[in-house]
Design a protein around this nucleic acid. Structure first.
Length: 493
RNA sequence: GGCGCAUUCGUCUAGCGGCCUAGGACACCGCCCUCUCAAGGCGGAGAUCGGGGGUUCAAAUCCCCCAUGCGCUACCA
């Protein structure tokens, strides 16, 4: 590819768990980098000490790695443009902020938080918003006075009072704003930390970022950033603002209320990373009028900013489930078993890989999420079944019939020479016919007796895996339950 | 309030002036298959393209206005 060097970054704040929205932003950046043979950078924007969370960084990296979004530069991998933590670049921001002050593009502001709050209060409802620029015209003497009082100033950008600022966005096109609607944003806080605006611009330039792909919510701050780039005399990167992800109802942001939102939640539920990547890629991006499934390689080959949508997209758990089910069905049986095992063990079932591997084909096309394997197959591993004996009475059958069915089935299965599917199926079908029952009636009763459920994996395979001993034992138990029931008080139907 | 962004089936979307009596996918409904549940196959319903004006022989597609939704308006990102 003959593009100019593509360097993109995902720049999250370590303030919480990696959110699917963030993951989508990271994915688009990663895809763009891979598509253009560029560099994908992970930069940690930890400039807000009040919201910083210790475990957030690890969760972030775990989530990205789980999704297969490896970064070329950043935490744990290094790179030539480090450090990649903004908290380790403080001197840099201070230096650049001072430079702006010296050149008249920024100024010290000594206004107290109280005054600013009061200002906002008084502006409520009015046309005038933002900082009133009181400190912009301070004399050297006034500044000295404040300094003498020990007030530590913030540094604000001196936005041009007149004129317009325009910028281009690959996805949204051109936007023009009146400078008069922009206020003098804080660049450097009084604690010496930079705000997002300063740190972001300085780092993007210093790290030679060529394209900025980030969430739509940043669009309004672009004019200020453009002004900053100009003040520094730096080249403005290419902007591409991605549509936000909405809740399934399409109203408002995606929140916990609707289900999992953290990548780790999806992982815990048993969504496959490849399905997540495919699904997330299609949220706000499309390739043509029919393709839904993309392998990672296809995504890299086909992903392009031109296919990115302008409008927000609602997150659909239904579609994700469908897609995840599809990916589960594509898995090789050994692979599937490997992935299933931790979910079983995780809930304390004594599962082993060999058994899970045998079970895998029985549940593969039934699973939407790996975690569902527990409810589908727990009876394979539990010592005792716990179910409502009433379930043993089949549809359109009496308790006496069910009892007869179980006894006869027990005899048949006990006599069977080989206890495998090939032998089980004809034997049981023959029995059903002999007893004048539909196969479904017979199998239904056995299913409950052996699995404790009305809905379970295909029965012949299930019996074979369970093994003769366990099957006969459970059949005996069921007969017992049925006898207890009929000898007890009569239950009205 | 100000500024900005967005607006095609419930949802994800195709569409970039005539191929659109708007296509695909999820979800939904029906039928087939079937030991339950799934998976799969077939079919169905579902959008007068937010509303109103233009431009044009012709508009979902171009222009203007309005409405609605969302975002920003912090010494948070």
């Amino acid at each position: 590819m003959s593009d100019k060097l593509v360097r993109v970054r995902f720049a999250p704040s370590p303030t919480g768990y990696l959110h699917v929205g963030g993951a989508r932003t990271a994915l688009f950046n990663w895809l763009y980098a891979r598509h253009h043979n560029g560099t994908f950078i992970l930069r940690i924007e930890d400039t807000d000490r009040t919201r910083y969370r210790e475990d957030a960084l690890q969760d972030l990296m775990d989530g990205l790695r789980w999704l297969g979004l490896e970064w070329d530069e950043g935490p744990e991998v290094g790179g030539d443009y480090g450090p990649y933590f903004q908290s380790q670049r403080l001197a840099l921001y201070q230096e650049y902020a001072q430079k702006l002050v010296k050149e008249g593009h920024a100024y010290q502001c000594y206004c107290s938080p109280e005054r600013l709050a009061a200002l906002r209060q008084s502006q409520r409802g009015g046309d005038q918003t933002g900082y009133d620029r009181r400190c912009r015209t301070l004399t050297a003497r006034e500044r000295a006075d404040y300094e003498a009082q020990g007030i530590v100033p913030v540094i604000r950008l001196a936005v041009p009072l007149e004129g317009q600022t325009s910028f281009h966005d690959v996805i949204h096109g051109d936007t023009i704003v009146e400078n008069s609607t922009l206020d003098d944003i804080v660049l450097l806080k009084s604690d010496g930390y930079p705000t997002y605006h300063l740190a972001n611009v300085v780092d993007d330039h210093l790290m030679a970022i060529s394209h900025i792909l980030r969430a739509d919510e940043w669009l309004p701050s672009v004019p200020r950033h453009v002004l900053l780039y100009r003040a520094f005399g730096w080249e403005i990167p290419v902007y591409a603002h991605l549509p936000v992800i909405l809740s399934p109802t399409g109203k408002g942001k995606l929140s916990k209320r609707h289900g999992g939102v953290a990548v780790r939640d999806f992982r815990r539920e048993g969504y496959l990373p490849e399905a997540m990547v495919n699904f997330l890629a299609r949220l706000g991006w499309s390739y043509d009028d029919k393709t839904e499934f993309f392998t990672r390689q296809e995504l890299i080959a086909k992903f392009d900013l031109e296919g990115v949508n302008r409008s927000p997209a609602a997150f659909s758990y239904d579609k994700l489930d469908w897609m995840n089910g599809f990916y589960i069905r594509q898995l090789g049986l050994d692979d599937l078993a490997q992935r299933l095992l931790p979910f079983l063990i995780g809930v304390g079932l004594p599962a082993d890989l060999t058994t899970v591997r045998r079970i895998a084909p029985l549940v593969q096309e039934r699973l939407k999420r790996l975690a569902e394997v527990v409810e589908w197959t727990d009876f394979f591993f539990s010592a005792e079944l716990d179910y409502d004996p009433q379930l043993l009475i089949g549809k359109k059958m009496t308790a006496a019939q069910s009892l007869a069915v179980l006894s006869r089935a027990r005899e048949t299965l006990a006599r069977l020479s080989a206890f495998d599917e090939g032998a089980l199926e004809p034997a049981l079908r023959a029995l059903a016919e002999e007893m004048g029952l539909k196969a479904g009636q017979l199998l239904g009763v056995i299913r409950v007796a052996v699995t404790g459920k009305e809905v379970a994996p295909p029965l012949f395979g299930t019996l074979a895996i369970l093994g003769r001993e366990k099957v006969l034992q459970r059949l005996d138990k069921a007969v017992e339950l049925l006898r207890e029931m009929s000898s007890g008080p009569v239950i009205a139907q």
